[in-house]
Design a protein around this nucleic acid. Structure first.
Length: 429
RNA sequence: GGAGAGCUGUCUGAGCGGUUGAAAGAGCACGCCUGGAAAGUGUGUAUAGGUUAAUAGCCUAUCGGGGGUUCGAAUCCCCCGCUCUCCGCCA
C-alpha cells in the first residue's frame, strides 16, 4: 500500500509513475473521496469530542449529587447526529481503503520503463549454453524414458498440472532443496524457518496477494457444522506469505537488522489465467517446491540488499553450473507490490530458451505498510521496514534445468559436484 | 472432541459503569546527589489517524478482534480468535 499522505501530496506525480506500469489512477475519484473523507472525519471527531465532554460533565455533576437531567436533555440529539455522520464517514473511508488496496507500488527510478516483457533489460549473463553432439531432449522426454515422471498417475490422483516424481528424480529434487537451504544458511547468513502452508486473509493482504489476486490462490472450503470461525484460510502461493508475515504488527530493534530468513515450502497456485502455456511437464504446476529468501532491512539498505539477495540466488546457479541471465523487469512486467525486480532466467536446452527460475524483488515499504512491520532505533519513533524476497530457487524448475543441461546421449544425467554428497556420492543418475 | 480459567502499556500487575491513556512496581532515558559508582532522589517513558508548514499545539481512536447496551464501556451483553489447565484422541 502506498502512503496516503504521499498520495495526497503528490497525486499527479504518483499517477504519472503508475501510468508507466500500465495502471491508471483515477485522480478525480481519489480527490473526491479524499475531500469527503476529510470533511466527514473532521465532523465526526468534533462530534465525538463534544460527546466526550458532555459525558464527562454528567459524570462530574452526578458525583457532586447535582441534577443531571438538564445535561441529559442537552445531549439528546447528539447521539443521532453522531451516528449518521459516523456512518457516512465509515462508508467513504471503506471506499477509499478499497481503492488504496488496489493501487500497485511505485516503480523505483532505476526500473526500466516498458509495457511488457519485451522491454525487460538483460543486466548480465553467466555461463555458456552447452553445444550438444546429439539431439537434446526436453525434461519430459528424458524423465519419462527413465520412468521418473508420471503425469497420468498425477492426473488420476488429483487433476491436471500436478506431477508424480519417482526414484532418482524424486531424490534429486530433495537433494536440490537441501543443497539450496544449506548454501543459504552456511554461506549467505540466512536463518532457516519452518512455516505453515495454510494462511489467513490478513497474511495474504499483508504481502499484497489479496485483494487483487484471489483467483490465483487456493481457498480452503469451510465445513459449516464444526467450523464456526469467521476467517477464511488459503494454501500459500509462495513462502513469501508466511515468512514475511513473521513481522506483521511487530516492532523490531533496529540494531538487529538486517533479518534474513530462508524457508522451503511447497507452493500452490491455481494459475487461472495461464492455461495453454507450458502444458507439458514441470514448468507450470499447481503444486511446486520452492526455497525462498526473505529480508527485512533498513530503508537505506534495501537496494544494496536487492543486489546481494540476487547474488545469493545466482550463486546457486553458478555452483550447479547452469547458464543463466539476469533480467531487470520493466515497469509493465513487474508484480503488483514490487518497486524493482530482477528475474533470473536459466538456460533450458529442451526449449532452446532462457526461462524464469527466480524472481528477486525490493518492495520498499509497500508490504511493510500493509503489514505494520516496523523497526525502532534507540528512542526514535518506529519506522517502516523495507522488505525483499527472492526465490533461491524454484526447485522444480531447477530440476528441469539439471536434467536438460546435464543429459547424456544415453539418457543418463551427470550430477554437478555440489549435489553428489546429497545423492549418496554417485556422479550420475 | 469435552470441562474449566484467562487475554490490560516494554514487562509484572491493579482496576470490573463516570475528569482512566489507564494505579503501583520493574525496566529504560535524562537530571540531581557522588572524586567515580552503587544506593537514594526528581522528571520523563505507547501506537495509529486527523488537522497543520510543522516530528509544535489541538482533536479522535486504541485495555485480544468485531458488534451491541448506555449521556458515558478496560469494566455489562453477544459473536469470534488466542493462551493455559484437566480429560479424551492422535503423528
Amino acid at each position: 500500500m502506498l502512503d496516503a499522505k504521499q498520495l495526497r501530496a503528490d497525486l499527479k506525480q504518483v499517477a504519472a509513475k503508475l501510468a508507466n506500469r500500465g495502471f491508471t489512477l483515477d485522480i478525480a475519484k481519489f480527490e473526491s473521496l479524499e475531500q469527503q473523507r476529510k470533511d466527514l472525519q473532521v465532523k465526526t471527531e468534533q462530534l465525538q469530542a463534544q460527546r466526550n465532554q458532555n459525558a464527562k460533565a454528567i459524570g462530574q455533576a452526578k458525583a457532586k449529587g447535582e441534577d443531571v437531567q438538564p445535561l441529559m436533555d442537552a445531549v439528546a440529539n447528539l447521539g443521532n447526529q453522531f451516528e449518521l455522520t459516523k456512518q457516512a464517514f465509515d462508508s467513504v473511508q471503506a471506499e477509499l481503503d478499497a481503492m488504496m488496496a488496489l493501487i500497485p507500488n511505485i516503480p523505483h527510478e532505476t526500473t526500466p520503463v516498458g509495457k511488457s516483457e519485451e522491454q525487460n533489460i538483460e543486466v548480465r549473463r553467466w555461463g555458456v549454453p552447452r553445444t550438444f553432439e546429439f539431439e537434446a531432449k526436453d525434461h519430459v522426454a528424458l524423465s519419462e524414458a527413465r520412468g521418473w515422471y508420471d503425469n497420468d498417475a498425477a492426473t488420476k490422483i488429483t487433476s491436471a498440472r500436478f506431477s508424480v516424481l519417482k526414484g532418482s528424480m524424486a531424490r534429486l529434487q530433495r537433494a536440490l532443496t537441501q543443497f539450496m537451504l544449506d548454501t543459504h544458511i552456511q554461506d549467505h547468513g540466512y536463518e532457516e524457518v519452518y512455516v505453515p502452508y495454510i494462511v489467513n486473509q490478513d497474511s495474504l493482504f499483508g504481502t499484497g496477494q489479496l485483494p487483487k489476486f484471489a483467483a490465483d490462490i487456493y481457498k480452503l472450503e469451510k465445513h459449516a457444522e464444526h467450523d464456526t470461525s469467521d476467517r477464511d484460510l488459503y494454501l500459500i502461493p509462495t513462502a513469501e506469505v508466511p515468512v514475511t508475515n513473521l513481522l506483521r504488527n511487530e516492532i523490531v530493534d533496529g540494531a538487529q537488522l538486517p533479518l534474513k530468513f530462508v524457508a522451503h515450502t511447497p507452493c500452490f497456485r491455481s494459475e487461472a489465467g495461464s492455461y495453454g502455456k507450458d502444458v507439458k511437464g514441470l514448468i507450470r504446476q499447481h503444486q511446486f517446491e520452492k526455497v525462498e529468501m526473505v529480508q527485512f532491512v533498513h530503508p537505506d539498505q534495501s537496494y544494496a540488499a536487492l543486489e546481494s539477495l540476487t547474488n545469493n540466488a545466482e550463486a546457486l546457479l553458478q555452483k550447479l553450473g547452469l547458464p543463466y541471465r539476469v533480467m531487470a523487469l520493466c515497469t509493465g512486467d513487474m508484480g503488483f507490490s514490487a518497486a524493482k525486480t530482477y528475474d533470473l532466467e536459466v538456460w533450458l536446452p529442451g526449449q532452446n530458451a532462457y526461462r524464469e527460475i527466480s524472481s528477486c524483488s525490493n518492495f520498499e515499504d509497500f508490504q511493510a505498510r500493509r503489514l505494520m512491520a516496523r523497526f525502532r532505533t534507540g528512542q526514535d519513533k518506529p519506522q517502516l521496514l523495507h522488505t525483499l524476497n527472492g526465490s533461491g530457487l524454484a526447485v522444480g524448475r531447477t530440476l528441469v534445468a539439471l536434467l536438460e543441461n546435464y543429459q547424456q546421449a544415453d539418457g543418463t544425467i551427470v550430477l554437478p559436484e555440489v549435489l553428489r554428497p546429497y545423492m549418496g556420492g554417485v556422479d550420475k543418475i
